[in-house]
Computed example of a mutant assay.
Amino acid sequence: MSDSNRTDFTSPSTFILLGIPGLEAAHVWISIPFCTMYAIAVLGNFTILFIVKKEPSLHGPMFYFLCMLAITDLVMSTSTIPKMLSIFWFNSREINFSACLTQMYFVLSFSTMESGMLAAMAFDRYVAICNPLRYSTTLTNSAVAKIGLAVVMRSGILTLPYPFLVRRYPYCRTNIIPHFYCGHMAVVKLACADIHINSYYGLFILFSVIGVDVIFIAVSYTLILQAIFRLPTKDARLKTFG
Rank of each mutant, 00 (worst) to 15 (best):
L160N: 06
A145E: 06
H184I: 12
F15Y: 11
C35I: 07
Y162F: 15
V144A: 06
R93W: 10
G148W: 11
R237N: 05
I40Q: 07
I177Q: 03
P232Y: 07
V219S: 09
I40H: 07
I177A: 01
L17N: 00
R168I: 11
A39I: 15
N91A: 14
F88G: 02
S4F: 14
V166H: 00
L149V: 13
L133C: 08
T222E: 11
A25C: 08
C172S: 13
A120M: 10
W89E: 05
P82T: 06
S109Q: 09
L85Q: 09
G148F: 10
S115D: 05
N45M: 11
E24C: 04
M104N: 15
C100W: 00
Y64H: 11
S199P: 03
Y126W: 14
L85G: 00
P163N: 01
L58I: 04
D124M: 02
V187S: 00
A41D: 10
R125K: 13
I157S: 08
C67Y: 08
R173L: 12
S86Q: 11
S79V: 06
R154H: 10
L18H: 03
L139M: 09
V212H: 06
M84R: 04
A120Y: 02
A218Q: 04
S220P: 08
I205F: 07
G116R: 00
A236G: 03
S13D: 14
Y221H: 14
H179F: 15
F65E: 01
Y221N: 08
I177E: 00
D8L: 14
L231D: 01
Y105K: 03
G183A: 12
L206V: 07
A143N: 08
F110I: 02
F204N: 03
M185Y: 12
L223D: 03
M121P: 05
G60M: 06
I228W: 07
F88I: 10
R93L: 05
N5I: 08
D235E: 15
G211C: 06
S79L: 11
F15M: 01
I81P: 00
L206A: 14
C130G: 08
A128G: 04
S136C: 09
F88D: 00
K189H: 08
I48A: 03
S136G: 05
S98I: 15
N175D: 11
A128N: 04
F164K: 06
G183K: 02
F106H: 01
R230I: 08
T36Q: 04
A122I: 01
P21S: 01
A128P: 05
M185F: 15
Y169M: 13
G156L: 15
C192A: 11
I217Y: 04
